[in-house]
């Protein structure tokens, strides 16, 4: 192994919901600039893994560093370096698409981001009028505006139309070209396998 710092170094990660272990024991390493595909059936722990690594939820066992920071001690540093495309859209229903991006703070180039995901004409409509696919696109715009060094994409293809599929792939390639590390949890194994550098298959909360 070269002495290059790892993008993600996870050891024995575990997480419980009630008495069930959604993630029992997952360890892996990922080098910067790589695209990793996480696959596995429903309930195998993909979402939990991505949520732990992006510090959205705590781990009940194990350790991990993301972008060189510990997931417990370096929470804020990790949050600055990463972006998570989650199942939940993170959007406010009563705000417009543009407002949802503007409240992220600073003065983000919202128009460019909205155009990138094909929502510029609907920029001033409230999110409550959006379809599931359009919400997904807007969440993508959110991820792009964060300019992450590591992007966690949980089911990026979900609810999208074929044009959206192409958009997802373009965005991943773009992120990778910019030097970012991308972790994609997906059921679309064949689509992602083309451009993934490494793969991680999960089963019952463990590496299969």
């Amino acid at each position: 192994m070269p002495m290059e710092p790892l993008a993600i170094d996870a050891a024995h990660l575990a997480r419980r919901y009630g008495r069930r272990w959604a993630l029992a024991d997952v360890s892996f390493q990922l080098r910067p600039g790589q695209v990793m595909m996480v696959s596995g059936r429903n309930g195998s722990g993909k979402t939990t893994l991505l949520r732990i690594l992006s510090t959205a939820i705590r781990a009940d066992g194990g350790r991990a560093t993301v972008a060189g920071h510990d997931i417990v001690k370096g929470r804020d540093e990790i949050r600055r370096a990463t972006a998570l495309l989650a199942h939940q859209s993170y959007l406010y229903e009563s705000l417009t698409a543009r407002e949802n991006l503007e409240i992220m703070g600073g003065a983000p180039p919202t128009s460019a981001a909205l155009e990138r995901v094909g929502l510029l004409e609907r920029a001033n409509d409230p999110v409550s009028t959006f379809s599931a696919g359009m919400r997904k696109r807007l969440s993508f715009a959110r991820v792009l505006l964060q300019k992450p060094a590591i992007a966690f994409l949980d089911e990026p293809y979900g609810q999208l139309d074929p044009e959206g599929f192409v958009l997802v792939e373009q965005v991943i390639v773009e992120l990778k070209r910019g030097g970012a590390t991308v972790v994609v949890a997906t059921h679309q194994i064949d689509r992602v396998a083309h451009f993934a550098d490494t793969k991680l298959a999960l089963e019952n909360g463990r590496v299969a």
Partner: peptide, 10 residues
């Protein structure tokens, strides 16, 4: 009981 570690193997 609630906080028991995960079983070693399924």
């Amino acid at each position: 009981e609630e906080l028991a570690p995960p079983p070693q193997e399924f």
